[in-house]
Amino acid sequence: MPIVECNNVSKEYKVGASVVSALKDISLSFEKGEFSAIVGPSGSGKSTLLNLIGCLDKVTEGNLKINGILIKEQNKTLLADLRCENIGFVFQTFNLIPVLSAFENVNFVLSLKKNLPENECAEKSMKILEEVGLKGLENRKPSELSGGQQQRVAIARALVKEPALILADEPTANLDSKTGEDIMALMKDLNMKKQTTFIFSTHDKMVMDYATRIINLRDGMITSDNGGKKS
């Protein structure tokens, strides 16, 4: 069973009296362990697609299933729980909580998962911070970390619950190219080790080079999809 399954998905935004059609009849699925990039010009619908897959927004037409669960039928709380169990997010802006240390930022998100003993939470949080290369910086506040380090915390935060799926909307857009490359290498490494599915959007050629599958979007439609085979 694919982890993500889109069948004839459309998304329209109402802006005043007019309707913007952001996605048009998209059918697409992702298997476990894929490392895919969604690319396309600005306004082509990359973020919209990621938001739908991330259950942050609802489709206008069509069906979307995550782990076989039909998203349209779920209420807000169930969706929150579903995201909590299955999906991690990384965004262009890091959105860390400034009053919490790196460790606490990660630990807080893990503690949202119900029925996890406290010490196990702490242990896991420490371990994931080590894995993203932040050993020794656990107690720093976000303001005491560089942009790349902050994005590593954000990745650790997305990963700590061991979700099946990580969605990253332009994860390197706010980083310099060297740092961006480090972050991509880190994500790729985690993808290989943990078989976590990654879907990210990007404009960046370097980022595309890391992807095993590239999906091209234009005006809300898929123009090409290499299906995971590098050409």
Partner: peptide, 16 residues
């Protein structure tokens, strides 16, 4: 707004 949006995306319930 942004931080809370992020936490909600990561599965924090609205009630929390």
């Amino acid at each position: 707004v942004r931080e809370m949006g992020m936490l909600r995306a990561l599965g924090m319930r609205d009630n929390d």
